[in-house]
Amino acid sequence: MKHIETKNVNAYYGENHVLKDISLTMKANTVTAFIGPSGCGKSTFLRCLNRMNDYIEGFRKEGDIFIEGEDIYDKKVRVEELRQKVGMVFQKPNPFPKTIFENVAYGLKIQGVKNKKILEEAVEKSLMKSALWAEVKDQLHKSALSLSGGQQQRLCIARTLAVEPTTILMDEPASALDPISTAKIEELISELKENYTIVIVTHNMQQAARVSDKTAFFYMGELIEYGKTKDLFTHPKHERTENYITGRFG
């Protein structure tokens, strides 16, 4: 079943043509990794999937993107609802300068949920899912900024899970973390796969190989190669892909 489908997506920042004719599909409950050298368009493409580029001045997109069968750039789609369904985790942990509880409850609160019990349950559930509950359950009302970097990133994942998305976009979620924290995040991704569709941008090829089912290689705004992760890393079809994964450039 096609969960995400993009058709001939082109994107521009002013004059710069940053995405060229990207068409691909992703299945539900899989992890897809986007790899490629910096500036190749992988992050831009990821951000198209929940319209995070909308507020960027001079950004323009052509082509269609469907998530769960819905054209997400259709005029009828409310971008706020889309982002509740398609959550995002960013490169650097970016908790709000609020308490741990408030961070996780934020998404529900902005939807108008006021019932304390519902909020408490949702916070607990989300923190469990992101494997942070045990570490923070006694300090829910402490500032989120007091957590370590790895914990902050798992908090950001919990925050995203709290609004019950179907899809989670991760933009180099472990690039700012130490190896142990990175391992925890990767483990978490594998667990979350059961219930969510995950798209992850990474510059770390071992990471892509470890966590993803399929991998897409981007270069200069083009999708060079897309296929099963195992195949792509062992038998790349294109020379550029091979050069990149063997570390000859990038």
Partner: peptide, 17 residues
């Protein structure tokens, strides 16, 4: 930092929120 705003937009908040 821009990332703070993005976190909020990413969860479906409006600019006002």
């Amino acid at each position: 930092p821009k990332s703070l705003r993005e976190a909020s937009y990413g969860m479906g908040a409006t600019r006002f929120q």
